[in-house]
Design a protein around this nucleic acid. Structure first.
Lengths: 186, 186
DNA sequence: ACCTGAACACCGTTCAAGT
DNA sequence: ACCTGAACACCGTTCAAGT
């Protein structure tokens, strides 16, 4: 990558971080290009899709969450590790309003630039869940997809002004559901 | 209302039902007007906001859900009534992709044309929840807002292709969390 | 009273033309 | 190689002009 191109890339990303933090994952790309003082085509050259931009924006955070999962795997009891990590995931994605919808969409679309990151995240969660289940501390009728879905739902609730005030409480309700070690109960 | 106006009103609503069912709650209003063979201003005259259109579209269903809640209150055991009603709410809103976001927004915005319907729905749910709690069959650290949030989250999950296949399973997980009669668990 | 559609200010996306 | 911004096909919303 040429030096000037790299500079543009970095600058667009920095501006995007500000704009997306403020206006959410559906922020105007035109607006980002404008604020970055760059042509609209330049933004598209570096980030051919919105998912590509979001992935570049979130990858550092995703990597940190993956690393965190590994630490927790040895440092904490299984149930504490799972809940603590889940909280981190929800908190992080909650920083970017609307990003969780992009993530659930990317989960299904293997062509999405966000796909790999989401799969990595799900894998990390699955490991923590499996470990907790093995100790009989989490319900066994759940898999990593369910965990990802519940995390996404909690993040989405955090985006809704009507639910946000009780987000922590809703988190605890769902966390307790995961940790109840019953078989598929109805 | 003049006869021709009424006819337009009804026809727009019928077309909107088709379009919103197919393309979701954010469907193009222009498209609806076009397909209804009506000027764009006519649509805005009858439905000044998107929320007003959605409310007109959903009110029948909301009324049915409210009536259903009353029936269940006398016909079923508290826990069965609550879960059965919750499932109906989730199923109904799940028919219109994206409508649940409009509902959570309307919950906070007293000026929204959807506000009253959402409050009515929440009230119906609160009654079923309170009754279940009184019998010691639902966790007591929850209120009607939480129930509404959890219903919304489940409906939202149903809209996400990555979660939809396990929507029923996720429903059961959350339903079981509501029905676990423990105090505020950590 | 009610309807129409042009007008305005925005989008996302593409691509010829420039350096 | 990379950048620019006009062009295209869409939006939501308003409102003067028509019937």
């Amino acid at each position: 990558m040429r030096a000037d191109a790299k500079k543009n890339y970095e600058h667009i990303l920095a501006v995007a971080n500000v704009v997306v933090t403020k206006h959410g994952a559906n922020a105007s790309l035109r607006d980002i290009a404008r604020k970055a003082g760059v042509g609209l085509g330049t933004l598209y050259r570096h980030f051919p899709t919105r998912a590509a931009l979001l992935d570049a924006l979130l990858r550092t955070g995703f990597d940190e969450l993956t690393a965190k999962a590994r630490e927790l795997e040895t440092a904490s009891s299984p149930d504490d590790a799972l809940v603590s990590w889940l909280r981190d995931v929800v908190t992080f994605t909650g920083n970017y309003q609307g990003v969780v919808a992009a993530m659930t969409a990317a989960m299904e679309d293997t062509e999405s630039a966000l796909h790999a990151s989401c799969v990595t995240l799900r894998t990390a969660g699955t490991r923590l869940l499996t470990r907790t289940q093995a100790e009989g501390l989490a319900r066994t009728d759940m898999n990593g997809d369910d965990l990802f879905s519940l995390a996404a739902a909690l993040a989405w609730l955090g985006d809704q002004p009507s639910s946000a005030p009780r987000a922590e409480h809703l988190f605890r309700i769902i966390a307790s559901a995961i940790l109840s070690n019953r078989a598929s109960g109805d």
